[in-house]
Simulated assay, not measured.
Amino acid sequence: MSTAEPAPARGRIAVLDILRGIAILGTFASNAWLFAVPGGASVWLSGGLLAQDPVEAGLRLLSNGKFLALLTLLFGIGIELQYRAALRRGLPWPGRYPLRALILFVEGVLHYVLVFEFDVLMGYAVAALLVAYLIGRSDRVLRAWIAVVGTVLAALMLGITALLLAVPDTPGPPPVADPSATASWPAQVAARLQFFPLFRIEIPLIIPSATVLFLTGALLLRAGALTDTPAGMRIRRRLMVVGFGVALPLNALTAFGSPDWFLVDRYLLPPVVALGILALVTTVVLRSRRAPGPARRGLAAVGRTALSCYVAQNVLGAFLCYGWGLGLAARFADAPPWWVVGLWATVCAVLMVGASLWLRRFDRGPLELLAHRVQGLGRTPARAGSG
């Protein structure tokens, strides 16, 4: 093996690392638009993050909600793998998983306060705690949870959307971008604390949505959707037909339609498209007989350090775009939206190279390593002479 390529961790499923890498970098493709607005989240408070330019709307369509949904599916697959590992080792389940969820929640709080208003880790932690107690149930029970929670959530979002469409839009003054809102990092931290309920308004949607997608990911793994078998290929074909043939065209209509379709555009259709992405990437990777190239190795490295890269990409986005950093958002305020693509590509390249270099010496990302050590602090040491 070349010294330029980090050694694969034992027991890992290669396609999952690549999928996680794609999901992490794809998530930043959506978040980059938030960083690229002069004034940052303060513009969101006044409703100024809706795409006005058709090119920008099209670029957002490619990423909005889809890769976050993919990441959520993969998180559920991860819980299922941890559950299986506990069974193989004869360990009780959920065992120490609640501590793991608590650590993730604390990381999410710190990420929100210090870095990014639209953190998902807090919602993931709460949903993961619930799913940890469900994951050992039968497939029938998991499907029932998915059906009930998913139906209620979909009905709620469609009902709100119907109300929004029924109420005539009242045009108001255009939002004013205030670059001074991002000129001071301490001021941004204070604003996140002050407007916590408003910035965290997504949490009631993230938790049930994540629960459904976590359980869906677990069932897909159980059904063999990630295996190079005829059954796995059949499942993936169906997912691609539904994801790309049905959900993606509908998602295009909502993306270029009225802003009142926001909930459907971000929370209902993208998870279905994400199923198609998962199926397509898995099929391509399983069929590939070539040695991994730099791009694939870089994606896998990001996937193996997913938590660290998720936080790092938002730190980089804030530093590059905000006034207390390089201030690119204000400098390129009148530039075509393609500059945001350049921002995304630059951050992706930094993460892929950085993660690959890190994994030459460590088998986990820095935040993953820290969380692992914190989990180990409370572990009761084995008695001398015990088996």
Rank of each mutant, 00 (worst) to 15 (best):
A371E: 03
V284Q: 09
L130G: 13
A177N: 11
L25W: 00
M240K: 06
M122L: 08
P337C: 00
R200D: 13
V176R: 10
T229G: 04
E202L: 14
S30E: 12
G342K: 01
L367H: 05
A128H: 01
P92C: 05
R331T: 15
R140C: 07
G172K: 03
F244N: 01
I206K: 11
D17G: 10
V374C: 05
V315Q: 03
A255K: 02
A181H: 09
A147I: 14
A274D: 01
P94N: 06
L248K: 08
L220K: 01
G245N: 03
V113W: 06
V350D: 10
L19I: 04
P54Q: 01
L326S: 07
P54R: 00
R88G: 10
L62Y: 04
L70R: 00
G298M: 04
L110G: 13
V241L: 11
V148D: 09
L129W: 06
L369M: 13
A147D: 11
L377F: 11
R20K: 10
A191Q: 13
T254F: 14
T283Q: 09
P270F: 06
F196I: 14
P8S: 09
A154T: 13
G276Y: 00
P208V: 00
L34H: 10
L104M: 07
A29Q: 12
L81H: 01
A252S: 10
V120F: 08
V281S: 02
L102Q: 07
P38T: 02
V115C: 08
V131E: 07
A312V: 03
G378F: 08
D260W: 13
R84S: 15
A69K: 00
V350T: 12
L45Y: 13
V350M: 14
L359W: 04
L34F: 14
A301C: 05
T216W: 09
V285R: 06
P186H: 02
T283K: 06
G342W: 07
V284G: 08
L269A: 00
A147N: 13
P54G: 01
P259Y: 06
A218R: 04
G276T: 03
I13V: 12
A69Y: 02
T72A: 09
R236Q: 01
R96Q: 15
R361A: 14
D265F: 14
T282D: 03
A128Y: 03
V241G: 06
F199C: 09
N251P: 06
S209G: 13
G217M: 06
A384L: 14
P197F: 07
L253I: 10
D334F: 14
A333I: 10
R379M: 14
S184E: 06
I207P: 00
V167W: 12
A14F: 07
L198C: 11
L158R: 07
F67C: 09
A382R: 15
A125I: 02
A32N: 07
A384I: 14
A4L: 15
P186C: 04
I103M: 07
G76K: 00
F244G: 02
P270V: 05
W33C: 02
